[in-house]
Each structure stands twice: as C-alpha cells, then as structure tokens.
C-alpha cells in the first residue's frame, strides 16, 4: 500500500507537470519582463529539475504542507479541506440513499423473479442504469425545480447558515447519483439472489421450516451482498474523489468542481493535490471493500 502510494504520487506529479504552459509566465501576466518571470520561477522552485521538485514536494506533503496555489497564493490545505467536507457529504448521502432504495428492491425482485412487479422494477431500473448521470440531473432540475419548484436547482447553502435549505440543496444531487447506483445494485442483487436461492443451504433451511425472514436475512442477504459491496465500494471511491460532472451541474462546491477550476486556471499545485487526494481515496476505499468482504465471507479473505 505504501509503495503503491509512492508510485502513484510520482505518476501524478509527472503527469501534471506534462501539462503545457509555464505557470510562472501565466502568473506574471503578459507584460512581465524576463527577470520578473525568472524571480517567480525561483520563488516557487520551478527552476529546479523535475526530479528535485518531486522530492521537495513529497517531503512537504509528508509534513502536511501542501504548498500554496500558483494562482492566488492561498495555502492549498485550506482550499482543499473545505471542499472535501462537501464532497464526502454528497458521497455518503448518495451511497446511503442508493442502498436504501437498491437493497430491498433488489432482494424483492430476486425472490419474486418473473412476477409482474419484477418486470416493472427491472424495467425502470434498466432505464436508470443507462441514462447518463448528467442528463438525469438536468431532468430532475426541470421537474423538481422548474415545473414543480420544491427544491433549489443548484448551489449550496452552508449548513451553519440554514440547515433546512442546506439539506434541500443536497437532495437533487444525491438522488441523481443514487438512482443510477441503485439501478446497478438492483441488477446485481436480482441475479445473485436467484443464484443463492438455488444453493443447497437455502433448500435445507426451507426444509427445516425456518421462517421466511430468517432465510432472507441469514442466508440470502449475507451471500448475495458481496458483489453489491464491491460495486458500491468502487462507486464510493469514485464519489469521494468528487463527481466532476454532478458537482458541476448542481454547483456543489466539492473537490470535483475545484479540480475543473484548477485545470482551467492551470494551477499545478492545486491540481496535483486534488488528483493525489482522489487517487488515494480510491485506493483506501478499495482496500476497505476487500476487508469488509473478508468479514462477510471468510473465503474471500486475501491470502
């Protein structure tokens, strides 16, 4: 894990430094003289070799010093931490919502396969599976903010200012992400519940006269949950990195929006911090998924 982190950080640093455009020249403006640009380069250490700069950066990151933004000179730590809170909030609420919608419906359709309700639910979820997130977001804005104006179309009121309006602004982006994710959960649970139903321990439990509730909770849920955790985990890793597009549509001030800004401003330091953060989150969540799967199913434990 540690070695992977070092390799990834090197990778991220190199890639970001491949972006054309000299930040010193951008900062100095068009009228700056060569000496002014040189001075700026020296100030930010841009005159050193790329390998040297990488190790300086890595050393600083280890000490918790992420440097200052090339564009406005603010410390990166402050810019990023406030954004991360928003991104985590959206990721967690969307994931919980998708589990609340997806797990009951997935298990129900799995148990009642080929029934009327199964066709309706599977049909609707197939639609949400295919519909692109950004289109769904816009449709939800049209329905719930324009035709039936109950929710704000975009933006975010800080929780400390007005908790109710804050939660209202969280609803549409959360649902946009959750509906697509729930559709994936339903799709996988549908087939994995049917798989589990065929297995002998379920037949034995039914023959033993176990209650329906017990069979579902003890045998079916536990065994069919592993693929779901994997999908949700992967998605969560993506979301914690900030959904670039959903945050853009809803004006949600998370890390994804900041990343797009960093690219438009050519803010190297900010961009490499963001990208590193996103990749690290992705790796941590993947590790967590392996551990949780190991707890639920000892057979899946990493050897």
């Amino acid at each position: 894990m540690f070695i992977a982190l070092i390799i990834t950080s090197f990778f991220v640093f190199m890639i970001i430094n491949l972006i054309p455009g000299d930040p010193a020249m951008i900062m100095a403006g068009t009228n700056a003289s060569e000496t002014q640009i040189e001075a700026l380069r020296a100030k930010f250490g841009l005159d050193r070799s790329i390998i040297e700069r990488y190790f300086i950066w890595l050393g600083n990151v280890m000490r918790g010093d992420l440097g200052v933004s090339f564009v406005n000179g603010q410390p990166i730590v402050g810019m990023v931490t406030s954004r991360i809170a928003y991104t985590i909030e959206l990721a967690v609420s969307a994931t919980l919502l998708s589990l609340v919608i997806g797990i009951p419906l997935g298990i129900y359709t799995g148990l009642h396969a080929k029934g009327f309700a199964d066709y309706i639910i599977t049909g609707i979820s197939a639609m949400f599976f295919a519909i692109p997130g950004f289109y769904l977001g816009i449709l939800l804005i049209i329905v719930f903010a324009l035709f039936w104006p109950v929710l704000p179309a975009s933006g975010c009121v800080p929780f400390s200012v007005d908790p109710f309006r804050h939660i209202a602004s969280l609803i549409l982006p959360s649902f946009t992400i959750a509906l697509g994710l729930a559709a994936r959960i339903i799709r996988f649970l549908h087939s994995s519940v049917q798989d589990v139903l065929q297995q002998e321990h379920v037949t034995t439990a039914i023959a033993r006269g176990d209650s329906r509730m017990r069979i579902v909770m003890q045998h079916i849920l536990r065994n069919s949950l592993i693929p779901v955790i994997t999908i949700v985990g992967l998605q969560m890793g993506d979301l914690l990195g900030g959904s670039l597009i959903i945050e853009q549509i809803f004006g949600w001030p998370g890390i994804g929006q900041l990343t797009i800004q960093a690219i438009n401003w050519r803010d190297y330091t900010l961009l490499q911090t963001n990208v590193l953060y996103i990749v690290v989150m992705f790796m941590i969540v993947n590790l967590a998924v392996d551990i949780i799967n190991g707890i639920i199913d000892p057979r899946a434990r990493v050897r």
Binding site: I7, G241, L244, L271, V275, I278, F282
Partner: peptide, 13 residues
C-alpha cells in the same frame, strides 16, 4: 495504475 484513476478524471487530466 491507469485503473487507479477514476475514468473521467484521467480523461480530463
């Protein structure tokens, strides 16, 4: 390493 990046982010970078 490529997979470790979320797809949209990698494409954007």
């Amino acid at each position: 390493a490529v997979i470790a990046f979320p797809a949209t982010l990698l494409a954007v970078v």
